[in-house]
């Protein structure tokens, strides 16, 4: 039976610890053990019964999605990338403006690289926007 416990422990390894996670884990271990006992009552060897319970378990991703909320995570990641792109482009533009007025104050050329750099936050903004809308539909 300790194989069941170590199997479930391994499955839940990458899910962040929480009370909910512990509860679900305990419940799953107990019910898998019920299943093994039931299979053994019906004449299966313990090892076969445990193997069957493990094979029948299915895809842990389904529980992960419920526990972590995959969509929320994706959106906040997009927000982070958007913030990074905004700050990054501000710094680059500031540098270009500085170079322009420091070295060649008579020629205004910083507009051109500024337009190029602005594509970066703009594209990230649309990624963020589409994630946000997706979440509303969900």
């Amino acid at each position: 039976m300790s194989r069941i416990k170590s199997y479930v422990d391994k499955l839940f390894k990458d899910i962040p610890n929480s009370e909910q996670k512990e509860n679900i884990k305990q419940e799953i271990i107990q019910n898998l053990e019920d299943k093994v006992l039931n299979l053994m009552e019906n004449g299966k060897e313990e090892e076969d019964a445990i193997n069957k319970a493990i094979i029948d378990f299915g895809d842990i991703e389904e529980i992960k999605e419920e526990l972590i909320g995959k969509h929320v995570n994706k959106k906040s990641k997009a927000g982070l990338v958007l913030g990074f792109s905004i700050w990054g482009s501000i710094l680059i533009i500031a540098l270009v403006v500085f170079m322009n007025f420091y070295y060649t104050p008579n020629v205004i050329w910083f507009i051109y690289p500024t337009f190029v750099v602005l594509w970066w936050p703009l594209s990230m903004f649309f990624v963020w926007l589409s994630r946000k809308n997706n979440k509303v539909i969900k």
Binding site: I24, D56, G58, D59, E61, E62
Partner: peptide, 11 residues
């Protein structure tokens, strides 16, 4: 599948 079942319970 157990994984499905517990996801449904949680939901």
């Amino acid at each position: 599948k157990e994984a499905t079942l517990y996801a449904v319970f949680h939901r």
